[in-house]
Simulated assay, not measured.
Amino acid sequence: MTTLRELLNIEIPLIQAPMAGVQGAALAVAVCNAGALGSLPCAMLTPETMRQELLRLTAQTPRPYNVNFFCHAPPEPDAQREAAWRETLAPYYREFGIDPAGIPAGPGRAPFSAAAAEVLEAFRPPVVSFHFGLPDDALLARVRSWGAKVLASATTVEEGRWLARRGVDAVIAQGVEAGGHRGMFLTDDLSTQVGTLPLVRQLVKALDRPVIAAGGIADAQGVAAAMVLGAAGVQVGTAYLLCPEATTSEIHRRALRSEAARHTALTNVFTGRPARGIVNRVMRELGPICPTAPAFPLATGAIAPLRAKAESLGSGDFTPLWAGQDASGCREVGAAELTRELARGCA
């Protein structure tokens, strides 16, 4: 089987997880120049912003890089469900003096599209990764026509097999420990979600292509453990959140440095889809899985002004503090140094 180094043309079989909202090109550049695969999250970028970030990235590194997209099906707006969600949040609106009538509805994240592909075509990125499945066949064929390697996240063996049948070059085994959004796409049943190490073991046995371990990997020892179980490489996200190249907010950084970082949970209150973050006030009081939250990503609009108001007061009570189950690897060192430290587990 082709190694991950050979497949992606990298020196270190390590991928910096794409983390929308807490990074731009700078973090990806630092990781690429250290010999691993840096990633640029694009799900929250407009086509023009994406183009600008790709210009920054490609101007600062000649090495392979990854661009990442979501592949969710945008839901139809549901006025009744939106009203129920705003009623759930009504006590907080009153607390902060916010008029819910002035809050616009709308998604905060967009799936991969022809418009995004149009921007990418000029750059022909070496690696493109997807979350929540894959785009339609025509869009996927367009990505492959550039010679890009295609990666995608699986949270179960069934998802891994589904991705393999559609020809992905490598599968990212996203264990339940991982921070941020669950990549699950064949089921909504959270009881199907398993830990990184058993998932890696199962996918390695089930698939005929490289498996990349993701979730709860915070240091070189964690990297080594995944490799012993057959992972071709690892994807690490949370450990990079305190790096100076990340755009992590001070509120988020403060939470990561605190004892609170030891308590994370899967929640849908910020976007409508399960994602792992540090437990805060709104997660404790509403759920963390709240039945009235609209479908992803429509929950975002109504909670956004609460987040903005709380943050203006220095509070992360309504902020998605995305983090995996092990934030112990978070260190305020350069991303290149952290990458080299993690690489010690790849031997």
Rank of each mutant, 00 (worst) to 15 (best):
R182L: 13
A261T: 09
G287N: 05
F185R: 05
V279A: 02
L207D: 06
T264G: 03
A304P: 01
A231M: 02
R209G: 05
S258T: 11
I251Q: 15
A220H: 10
R284S: 13
S191G: 12
A231Y: 00
R276Y: 05
A255S: 14
A170P: 01
D189E: 13
M184T: 12
T292I: 00
V234S: 01
S191A: 14
V194Q: 13
G277W: 01
L298I: 02
P305M: 09
T267Y: 02
A246R: 07
G195S: 13
M227A: 05
G183M: 09
H263T: 14
H252D: 09
L241C: 12
L266A: 04
P244N: 10
P297C: 10
A173R: 03
A178R: 07
R166F: 03
T271R: 08
A220V: 00
L241K: 06
S312Q: 14
G167A: 03
L197K: 11
P288D: 01
G287L: 03
L229C: 05
A261V: 06
F185Q: 06
C290T: 12
A225H: 01
L207N: 09
A260H: 08
L313G: 09
K205F: 12
T264R: 01
I303F: 09
L241A: 12
G216P: 08
L313R: 15
G195C: 11
R182Y: 07
T300Y: 14
T192E: 14
Q202S: 14
R284I: 00
A295L: 15
